[in-house]
Simulated assay, not measured.
Amino acid sequence: MKASNSAPQDLIIVGNGMVGHHLVEQLVERDVHRHYRIRVFGEERHLAYDRVHLSEYFSGRDADDLALSTTDYYAEHGIELHLHEAVTDIDRDARELVTPQGRYAYDRLVLATGSYPFVPPIPGGDRDGCLVYRTLDDLDAIREAARSATTGVVVGGGLLGLEAANALRGLDLDTAVVEFAPRLMPMQVDNEGGELLREKIEALGVQVLTDRATQHIEDGDTSRHRMVFQDDKLLETDLIVFSAGIRPRDELARNAGLEMGERGGVVIDDRCLTSDPAILAVGEVALWRGSIFGLVAPVTRWPRPPPTP
């Protein structure tokens, strides 16, 4: 919808991930960029990229191959792109965004901050060589650690965990998956499906350990780490990758005093509006009717700009 003032209003999108970039594409398709001055902030140094195919980064594809767009696309549509510039605060009273580089005024603000990998609070889980699988920088760290490793373990047997295990196999590591539940992908498959999936994964040369709760991680005898499980069984490995689920990146919204879900996530209505009518939220940070779905579509209808205070 066209802004009500003759001068363009300021629209800021926080997050240049897959959802944030998809939103930009939808706004361009609907000519919203002609009526708003749009700025996009991404804390990573890379343009938005395809996280679904991250493991292909280890098989020859680079950041440019995985990129969903180019800097030229943003420039051609008059969109100001701020990469490697993390947003640290939202001043709702002044309607300004704060980064280490300065303050930026907004009339509309969209939070597309996504999620972060959950690392279980395991003693020793912060040791060197204990990593996460989420960003290209994470993959660079995994590849570097793998140079001096022969074995690797993924903690988490969900879809992303299995993707991470495939990545470790691609780095020529003897790989195991450790899952707390009695089967792989426990939220998606039943027991029978879990057994079939286990057979498929083991056929790829990946060891599968289910019903395993890691109690702590310590120095190993023959490898860098020793994982100690609840039944006192042990597993030694050189590299550990946590892929035990995600949590919404909602700290900006929380610190700004927006309404939050009991377990996290920014509460939104059917138009993706938060408790502040000048701020919207989309993607994995947005909580709609008690659940997080990764929504982006409703915001592209673009509600009427709020009155200037």
Rank of each mutant, 00 (worst) to 15 (best):
M1G: 10
M1R: 13
M1Q: 08
M1F: 00
K2C: 06
K2M: 13
A3Y: 02
A3M: 02
N5R: 15
N5W: 12
N5M: 14
N5D: 14
A7I: 09
A7K: 15
Q9R: 13
D10W: 05
I13P: 05
I13L: 14
I13K: 04
G15K: 09
G15E: 05
N16S: 03
G17Q: 03
G17T: 10
G17L: 00
M18V: 14
G20N: 07
G20K: 08
H22N: 14
H22L: 15
H22P: 01
E25M: 11
Q26N: 14
Q26S: 12
L27M: 14
L27C: 06
L27W: 10
L27F: 14
V28A: 06
V28I: 12
R30M: 14
R34S: 11
Y36S: 09
Y36P: 03
Y36Q: 02
R37K: 12
R37D: 07
I38G: 02
R39K: 15
V40H: 08
F41L: 00
F41G: 03
F41W: 00
G42Y: 02
G42W: 05
E44V: 04
E44W: 02
R45P: 12
R45D: 14
L47D: 11
A48E: 03
A48V: 13
R51C: 01
L54K: 08
E56I: 01
E56N: 08
E56F: 02
Y57H: 07
Y57M: 06
F58D: 10
F58K: 05
G60R: 04
G60H: 01
R61F: 10
R61E: 13
A63Q: 13
D65I: 03
L66G: 08
A67H: 08
L68A: 04
T70H: 07
T70Y: 12
T71I: 12
D72L: 08
Y73F: 15
Y73W: 15
Y73H: 13
Y73P: 13
Y74A: 03
Y74N: 09
Y74G: 04
H77K: 11
G78Y: 01
G78I: 04
I79A: 01
E80Y: 02
L81E: 11
L81I: 07
H82R: 06
L83Y: 06
A86M: 10
V87I: 13
I90P: 01
D91S: 05
R92F: 12
R92N: 11
R92A: 13
D93K: 14
R95F: 06
P100N: 06
Q101G: 12
Q101S: 14
G102L: 03
R103N: 07
R103F: 02
R103K: 04
R103G: 00
Y104G: 07
Y104K: 06
Y104L: 13
Y106E: 09
D107N: 11
R108N: 12
R108K: 15
